[in-house]
């Protein structure tokens, strides 16, 4: 479905950075010289006029590579400073984050979670890594220890939410249609419908996709990437953005290791090349092996969320 998402291109080749400010150039010399240049005037309302000046002279006496001021005035007869020569076009400086709307939603969610002492975990992985199986096992094993809820993201069906609800845990399915990730506003709406128990554990199971979910802050407390032993060890290098934003890597399906050539050490090495501080926990959601570490990680996170809430309430 998602032909343009990361899968679509060879990735970002470096091109020149032309975002530097006006009139920054490096030159080392001590002489008078002439030059022509292009520069900008910025009005009080952020309007920008960029224009060229033909060859003119002024003295320089300075070392190399630096910004320099323009100690001279340029008259602009006959046109407004924010207008082009023909008076019809003008430049507007914006410098606004494209994800501003999502980020504002994420900030609101984060505030909501913090105020309620909720530990919100954004669970991400490729399709089939075992996120839902891990959740079902977790919610079954930890039942009654603390309140929990799940937001399930999938393009279609409520199969996963049904599996979660079968454990007795409240769950809400968010279908993204053709969308390949959850965004902050979807989470806000889901939380509104699901209700948020104070001092609870909230799992947000993202759409199975190692690319797009990495770009959308949901306001979660922690980001967890699940990677199973039936995948390639080189996925952290192939999908670096996902690992760059992760707090914890859960390696799932370790029960299958005897049957595979999967090298756990290499996976961890690759993952920590991308994110040096990445925590790693190895589990098998099927046999239960290693789940104690995972549960401890969750309980530590929840305890911290509760502590922060108490501190903030005082």
């Amino acid at each position: 479905m998602c032909g343009v998402c990361g899968c679509g291109g060879a990735g970002a080749g470096l091109e020149d950075d032309r975002t530097g400010g006006p009139a920054r150039h490096g030159h080392g010399h001590e002489q008078e010289h002439g030059h022509e240049h292009e520069h900008e005037h910025v009005g009080a309302d952020g309007t920008v006029l960029r224009h060229r000046h033909d060859l003119h002279h002024h003295a320089h006496h300075h070392p190399s590579d630096h910004d320099h001021p323009h100690p001279h005035a340029h008259p602009h007869p006959g046109h407004r400073p924010d207008r082009d020569e023909d008076g019809t076009t003008r430049l507007l400086r914006v410098e606004q984050d494209i994800l501003a709307k999502n980020n504002a939603g994420a900030a609101a969610n984060r505030e909501l979670f913090a105020a309620a002492g909720v530990f919100a975990v954004n669970l991400m992985s490729s399709p089939g890594a075992g996120k839902t199986t891990l959740l079902v096992r977790t919610l079954t094993d930890l039942k009654g220890r603390f309140p929990a809820a799940v937001i399930e993201g999938d393009q279609q069906t409520s199969v996963d939410a049904d599996r979660i609800r079968a454990t007795g845990t409240p769950a809400l399915q968010v279908n993204t249609g053709t969308g390949c990730h959850l965004d902050a506003l979807m989470v806000t709406r889901a939380v509104g419908r699901l209700g948020l128990a104070a001092e609870s554990l909230l799992f947000i199971e993202n759409v199975g996709n190692l690319v797009c979910p990495a770009g959308f802050d949901l306001g979660e407390t922690r980001r967890v990437v699940v990677l199973s032993t039936t995948e390639g060890e080189d996925k952290p290098l192939k999908y670096p953005n996902m690992f760059a934003v992760a707090d914890l890597l859960v390696i799932n399906k370790t029960d299958l290791l005897p049957h595979l050539t999967f090298d756990v050490g290499r996976l961890v090495d690759y993952a920590r090349r991308i994110r040096p501080d990445l925590e790693v926990i190895q589990v098998s959601a099927t046999t239960g092996d290693g789940l104690g570490h995972w549960y401890q990680w969750l309980e530590t996170g929840l305890a911290a969320a509760r502590r922060h809430r108490e501190t903030d309430c005082r």
Binding site: T19, T88, L91, L92, I98, P240, A244, R273, P276
Partner: peptide, 29 residues
């Protein structure tokens, strides 16, 4: 993300730029 520091070869660094998504400016009429 998998590249080391080009000056000292150390693999650990903290990103300070180059992950932005911004509208910088418009030309309008």
């Amino acid at each position: 993300y998998d590249r080391p520091c080009p000056l000292c070869g150390e693999g650990r660094w903290v990103l300070v730029g180059g992950d932005e998504l911004q509208v910088l400016e418009l030309e309008v009429e």
